[in-house]
Simulated scan of single mutants.
Amino acid sequence: MTRPGHRAPDGYDQAAFPPFAVTVDVVILTMRDGRLHVLLVRRDADPYAGAWALPGGFKRPDETLDEAARRELREETGVVAPKHLAQFGAYGDPDRDPRTNVVTVAYLAVTPEVGEIHADTDASEARLWPVADAVRGLTLAFDHRRILSDAVDRAADQLEQTDLATAFVGDTFALSELQNVYQELWRADIDSANFRRSLTTPPQNPAAFAAPEPENYVEPTGRRAKAGRKGGRPPELFRAGPAWQTQPPVRRPRRPPRDD
């Protein structure tokens, strides 16, 4: 059904305005071996043939931006978009793409496991890269280094404001896994004892005191992780508790970040 007033004005000349294209780019972050990683593809065609880039591409006229982001991620890498997929920025410098004037809408995606990765369409290779290596050591296509850096900064900020940290771990996790998320995104060393205390202490606010039972950030599952190759007692496994909806448990260290 046509919405009232949803039509071009009489005499509207589309050619009177300069054309531009719209693309989507997806920054998908995950933790692997205790380090923050990003999924990148190697471009198979010009511009920037052979360079690494964020998964993405042109939005089709008949799809929404969210649909385009999910499609491009799946087509280029074989990865199904995770639950946490959200816009975080738009980039429209007139010279950012040598083909034409292109505005890209950037998405941040977070997942504990990306699943099976395989390159397709206009990507010759797809793989996870440590974020630190990608930002400092790779020649990324277009303005993707800036977009990647902005995405990491956004994720780091959201650790203090939302429950984003829990999106990096599975349904059950060791506290050390969650601690690694904070340390990697904030590039800071966090004391393990203080971190554990922050997560096992209910939030100190009136809403929490009004609850019948204290709400916890983490709840023990009564199980332990599988024994590692180095031996020792396997770590206890937890699941996320309801207190994340009240306020995040950990404050960002107000000291210079580590240089790594």
Rank of each mutant, 00 (worst) to 15 (best):
T246S: 03
P214A: 01
E215Q: 14
V250K: 06
Q245M: 01
P235W: 09
P249M: 06
P249W: 04
A243H: 09
G231D: 03
P242W: 04
P242Q: 11
P242H: 10
P249I: 05
R229W: 13
P249T: 03
T221M: 01
P242S: 10
R239I: 08
G228F: 14
R224K: 13
P248W: 08
R223Y: 11
T246H: 00
G228K: 15
F238Q: 03
Q247Y: 00
G232V: 09
E213M: 10
P234V: 06
A225P: 03
P242K: 12
W244D: 04
R251K: 12
Q245L: 06
P242V: 10
P235R: 03
K226G: 15
K226T: 13
G241R: 03
G232T: 11
W244V: 02
K230S: 12
Q247P: 00
G228T: 14
E215P: 04
V218I: 06
K226N: 12
F238Y: 15
Q247K: 10
T221R: 00
Y217I: 03
P248N: 00
V250M: 09
T246E: 04
R229Y: 13
G241P: 07
G232W: 08
G241C: 08
E236G: 05
P234G: 06
W244P: 04
P248D: 01
V218S: 04
P234L: 01
G228W: 12
G222R: 08
P242R: 14
Q247F: 00
N216E: 10
V218E: 05
A225N: 09
E215R: 13
G241N: 03
T246P: 00
G232H: 07
E219V: 15
G231L: 07
G231V: 02
R233S: 14
V218Y: 01
G241V: 09
N216A: 12
P242F: 07
F238A: 04
V250Q: 09
T221D: 03
V250E: 01
P234Y: 09
G231M: 00
V250T: 06
V218C: 03
G241S: 10
G241Q: 11
V218L: 07
L237V: 08
A243T: 04
L237E: 06
G228P: 15
P214I: 05
K230A: 13
K226A: 15
A240K: 09
Q245E: 07
P214R: 06
T246C: 00
P234N: 10
E236L: 10
G222D: 02
A227V: 13
A227H: 07
E215L: 15
R223P: 02
E213P: 00
A227W: 10
F238C: 08
E236I: 09
K226I: 13
G232P: 10
A243W: 08
G222M: 07
L237G: 08
P249C: 01
N216P: 06
R233T: 14
G222L: 07
E213H: 11
P242I: 03
E213T: 14
F238E: 07
G228C: 15
Q245D: 05
R223C: 07
Q245I: 00
G241A: 05
P220D: 01
R223A: 15
P220S: 02
G222F: 10
N216C: 08
R233A: 14
E236P: 01
K230F: 13
A227D: 08
E215G: 08
A225V: 12
A240C: 03
P235Y: 10
P248V: 05
A240S: 15
R233D: 12
